[in-house]
Design a protein around this nucleic acid. Sequence first.
DNA 1: CTTGGCATGTAACCCGTTACATGATTTG
DNA 2: CAAATCATGTAACGGGTTACATGCCAAG
Lengths: 179, 179
Amino acid sequence: MNTLSYGLLSLLSKDSRTGYELMQHIQPFWPAKHSQIYPLLAQLEQMGYVEFVHVPQSDKPDKKVYSLTASGLKALQEWIGLPTDAPVTRDEFALKVYCIGLVDKDEAMKMLLERENYYIQKKEQYGESFEKVKRLSKKPLEELEIHDPLFGNYVLIRKATLKVEADLFWCEWMKSKLK
Amino acid sequence: MNTLSYGLLSLLSKDSRTGYELMQHIQPFWPAKHSQIYPLLAQLEQMGYVEFVHVPQSDKPDKKVYSLTASGLKALQEWIGLPTDAPVTRDEFALKVYCIGLVDKDEAMKMLLERENYYIQKKEQYGESFEKVKRLSKKPLEELEIHDPLFGNYVLIRKATLKVEADLFWCEWMKSKLK
DNA sequence: CTTGGCATGTAACCCGTTACATGATTTG
DNA sequence: CAAATCATGTAACGGGTTACATGCCAAG
């Protein structure tokens, strides 16, 4: 059982989903390709942590809809109580910034603006996710409490938004340094 | 040539270093173990991007001090101009927060405080790095410009500090949600 | 008429971690 | 006396990406 496996159980604790959907929705938390997810789902099924139903479709390919079992839920809750690994970030851009003095100001500024655009797009995406959660929720988001199914979504979007705002602030600050 | 290889060249563009030192100093940018670095250095040497001198030591084991060659510098500068991969973060804590509703408020608060402590320690570390750079610099840090060898260090510590402050702000906000 | 989305799976490969191996000195 | 630091390396394993494979439908 690796972290990605628990990640899949985490998503399934809220909704039954196909492998394809799991692949799409786990990206913000733990990037993974379908080629990694399908074999793990087969494993989880053999361990009895998930089960699936075949759903034939006429217009699209048939699919397998996975759900969390009682023993899967138990495993998930135990994992939450276990010590948590430190986050790992790998950012090629940071390596380039470290030795940015090797290129001239113009090229450095070009790189910075590209990265700033990337952050702007991310911020927009988080804004859309926020609106989506707002629409799904009956209560105003500030009133959501821990056991609301949307609580996790809400607080993680807030976390991502704060992070991207810090990144954009840094970009602004950097621009003044490269003038 | 993978990203880590360019990372090693990036560090060597500032100082000649041993594999061991490279392993220590690349951690904030691109976490890697010595077992990954030593074979890459051997490759880089065969490609002519780095060279080394044997330095016998009496008290400690002998070492190989690596330096960047002219062709290594060229490769490094070309890499900087190439498109940059998006950053990748994997955070087990985020997965747990997503389904935090599966445990009670007390356990959730315990997890949050643990993570907050982790961030506090990180912030202290960045503070120390900042002081270290300040001591090494002849000029006040705000006056460093792009071609100063300390510029990269300075702006990356600033970036990391802004990030950890955003994380701590989020923790404070979360604590009020779990009361 | 080609590209992208839906939907599943396998195989080969590269990247990264853990473990094995050695050995002296310093610190607790 | 045990653990940590310096210092280098290899081997085995698990995690993650790219590529191979299939096939239908919708949109540009």
